[in-house]
Nucleic acid binder design. Sequence first.
DNA 1: CGGATGACAGATATTGAAATCTGTCACCTG
DNA 2: CAGGTGACAGATTTCAATATCTGTCATCCG
Lengths: 197, 197
Amino acid sequence: MSPTSQTLTAERILEATEEVLRRHGPAKATVVDVARALGVSHGSVYRHFRTKAALREAVTKRWLDRTTQVLAAIVAAPGLDPETRVREWLAALFAAKRRKAFDDPELFATYSVLTTETAETVVSEHIADLTGQLTEIVRVGVDTGAFTTDDPATTAVALFRATDRFHDPHYAREWELPGVEGEFEAVVELLIRGLRR
Amino acid sequence: MSPTSQTLTAERILEATEEVLRRHGPAKATVVDVARALGVSHGSVYRHFRTKAALREAVTKRWLDRTTQVLAAIVAAPGLDPETRVREWLAALFAAKRRKAFDDPELFATYSVLTTETAETVVSEHIADLTGQLTEIVRVGVDTGAFTTDDPATTAVALFRATDRFHDPHYAREWELPGVEGEFEAVVELLIRGLRR
DNA sequence: CGGATGACAGATATTGAAATCTGTCACCTG
DNA sequence: CAGGTGACAGATTTCAATATCTGTCATCCG
């Protein structure tokens, strides 16, 4: 009946939603559009997601989790000294965000809006995931004697906050300005020096 | 003729503009409103400011400069060691912004909008002023042997950017959350440690 | 004559009626 | 009978007509 008449799964709906969001932007993407893209009635979409907000939340979480997974690889990578691991983790976060912003500006702008309007919990869980990863790196650094701190978790949050400028979508416009790379390195340098014993 | 029939000066217009902005907000504050508040025709306002944008720019600059002046006192204050001076300067910046945001939320929100829509130069000059002050503090710190850095100006920018979260109006909502004070101190602690020889 | 005025043209914002969307649910259909 | 449908009520958005505002300037006034 429809062009893609496989069974309707949450995953297929999320894919269609992302496509509709990319095409129409956050303001004009409707549940009806998503249903149309899937060749089903909008009632069917509501069978998988209770509200439009829940759908947007799910698609946002999916997007944020992709970054979390990339960074987890750096936490787990063997053979890095703690200092290098922190540098690479922060650089990877910056690079991932910058790539998203540059490669598909429409979609990035869309998700930037979604993260501000979506339920606070999705974003704060994402931040908790990321600072959790950083905490692990710092903790290992302290254990091996490379770093000093009273409390790895507090220090991890400080590292994350001090680098907000280089991962908060709010600053995305400035990520293509010349000199940002230098600013990033100067901040990281200062922070790494602050971590050292 | 009007309730306040002194001569019409740029300063009086700026005062009236701030009042109109506080009352009506940035979206609904018009040049006609400002003229009405002063008991003159809007043509007279255009005699002092070429455009509405120029008027908004001037009132924004005036607002930003007030903070710059407060902080200049800390740069010049005698008898502070460099580390304390950095701590106090950053704390004063945070405190000044937080006070503005808390004491008069309407006006603060208004100026937050103005700084995003106003000509880039006003804001970047403000930032240049502030990082200039920080550069001076860092430079003295290096000269007295308290700090190490290749380039005080770069380091000053890094200090400013690493603390964006605690002075960028974008984050104002989070300045009243519990724990912000702790986050601020953790970031400053890390940065100060990074400055030390 | 220096400074203020208000009528005016084009740009921008407001408003309210019509169109669309969200979320529900009784009813299909394979 | 599990999964899908589409009509429906209330909420939200769109659109075009109307009102207001911006910026200019010929004219006025002390």
